[in-house]
Design a protein around this nucleic acid. Structure first.
Lengths: 335, 335
DNA sequence: ACCGGCGATTAGAGCGCTCTAATTCCCGGC
DNA sequence: GCCGGGAATTAGAGCGCTCTAATCGCCGGT
């Protein structure tokens, strides 16, 4: 329980504390003889470097903070995997902060990271732009999966409007006209998916069929949104949910009303999380290369951390449509 | 980007650095007048306390590290929510470490926490006992959702054997005899669920029908396990998977073979994650009060951190059966 | 006017480490 | 045998904060 310090190791090994420091950092100019002595002494005493002291002195923590919006959303878990893989590669450690599904929660998490003086922060969530700007002044920062134009930080995301277009085009091609959207609220990229939906509907001359139900990227609101839409006088024949999680909620609501998918209602999601591929769901959705996004985010961040690059960079990847069994022609369509 | 220090705030406010420290810590014996001065100066300069320095000096970080086995498993997300809620309450901050689904990954995460000198650690995962023991020597530690007897740390979990009994009893009562199990490998509590399964089968005189497929708590192995079992000469009429995630995999595999659930095969899971309740799944499973477990874990930990209690405590909660539509009588059963 | 006492404030010594500059060591060259 | 020079090692001053002990200032009591 008591701290073993560098000092103690130094005494035991019969060298100076400074030498212990050099050995622990793997410095080159240390004789094999002394290196061995130090390592042995350290092992024997169970010495564990104190990162707090080390970081205080060196002003580097070699740690990246990752703010995730919601631990329940598999999409973020996948992004996190990508980040983790890249961090392992670069020998950085990762700390996760749970945003608890709210911008305030994320702000707290970011603040914690800043107080810990992490070397960089990746925001995968819905943090308010003002908070991001403030944080970006204090630490290198990359924003993931958001479409807003952000001037003071690097960003990486897919083209959410284009993704929404893909989905609407697909549904229209299948014969649908009454295509509704379940919104993602403040969810990452949700606003642009919504815009893309409206755009595409207009482009197809379906202005009159635009219907949007509120949501927030969760199963619960997906379920509620679907309920609201299906209760309307002219219910949609297809529902495009802002993300897979809410699509699953919509799926569930639809089935529990005794309606069939896709015979009575087609459903589309966004993210292509692992679950979407399950045979009993077969969710038609928009794929985002989540792990690649995570890995790229870390790489961009480290570039900034280590080379001090300060021009911001914005990477936009292209989404792609994945057609599965949850979408098909509308009911009564002869096709 | 540059650090604003206590010193600078002190100068701006015309007081000593020590007073700034007192104000930042919310000490009682500070005059309103000076407190205001300090706070204003701090706000103006954008002062942010340096946790590294603070913790180095005070030897407390006011931070708890949480090791999660796998960010993809919703059960852990739910436990994490419980921990988070309790931590908010107690005004502790939380840092998450991703175990990447392996004991080694978790060991790395724990080591990171120790180097950061967190005040306590919660292990929600599959860390090896030896590593746990070592870590527990250095920091207060609570192990969550594991059934092994652990002497040197607090534990909290449900009675996994009892849970397995509930499931087997339920399936037997429905008329099943050929009940197979998909194992959870090193997953938290998996070993005891497996033992409980075997026990219960024996108790019902079904020794000959005991069949176990390997798995590791993921959808993939659930799918593979089901495939293996259903390919056997005398395939089971019911499959009890070690957790919901693998049950979902089994579910998927079964459906994609054109078999119906529960008409042809009944499926049971364990954990009662949110998805299990979805209408299209309707997974019969064993409920664990995940958020309560998380909250209780944090409370136990803080008790130890703050009062220095050193007798270990072991809490065991009772699981309960949740029957949904994925289980029913075996095929050909007249009942 | 003087003193005790108490709350408010501050000085100063660390916390465990890194890092620069200085020192020591050792070897080859002359 | 002495000197120069590069490699190995060390001294010592911080990093930004907390915490104990000391100091200050002000009040009432006598």
């Amino acid at each position: 329980m008591t701290q073993v310090t560098q000092q103690q190791v130094a005494e035991k090994a019969g060298v100076s504390p400074a030498l212990v420091s050099l050995v622990m950092r793997g410095a080159p100019n240390v004789s094999d003889h002394r290196r061995r002595l130090v390592l042995e002494a350290a092992a024997e005493l169970g010495y564990r470097p104190n990162v707090l002291a080390r970081s205080l002195a060196s002003r580097r923590t070699h740690t990246i903070g990752v703010v995730v919006n919601d631990l329940h959303n598999p999409f973020f878990a996948e992004v996190a995997d990508g980040i983790q893989a890249a961090a392992d590669e670069a020998d950085y450690r990762l700390l996760f902060g749970n945003g608890r599904h709210s911008p305030e929660g994320e702000a707290v998490a970011v603040e914690t990271f800043l107080e810990f003086r992490v070397d960089g922060v990746i925001v995968a969530g819905t943090l308010e732009l003002a908070s991001i700007e403030e944080a970006a002044r204090a630490v290198p920062l990359v924003v993931v999966a958001r479409s807003e134009h952000i001037a003071w930080a690097d960003t990486i995301n897919t083209d959410n409007e284009a993704g929404a277009h893909l989905m609407v085009d697909h549904l229209v091609a299948a014969g649908h006209r009454r295509i509704a959207h379940i919104d993602g609220g403040g969810g990452a990229g949700a606003a642009h998916r919504s815009i893309g939906y409206v755009d595409a509907m207009r482009r197809h001359g379906l202005d009159d069929h635009i219907q949007i139900a509120a949501g927030d990227f969760t199963e619960d609101t997906g379920r509620a949104g679907a309920a609201e839409l299906l209760d309307r006088p002219r219910p949609p024949t297809a529902i495009f949910a802002a993300n897979d999680l809410s699509a699953i909620g919509a799926f569930d609501e639809t089935l529990s009303r005794g309606m069939r998918i896709p015979d009575d209602v087609s459903i589309g999601g966004y993210d292509n999380i692992g679950l979407a591929a399950m045979a009993h769901l077969g969710l038609t959705t928009i794929n985002q290369p989540s792990e690649d996004i995570g890995a790229a985010a870390l790489d961009m961040l480290l570039q900034r951390v280590e080379t001090g690059r300060d021009a911001t960079e914005h990477v936009v990847l292209q989404p792609e449509l994945v057609v599965r069994t949850s979408s098909g022609p509308p009911p009564g369509d002869p096709t």
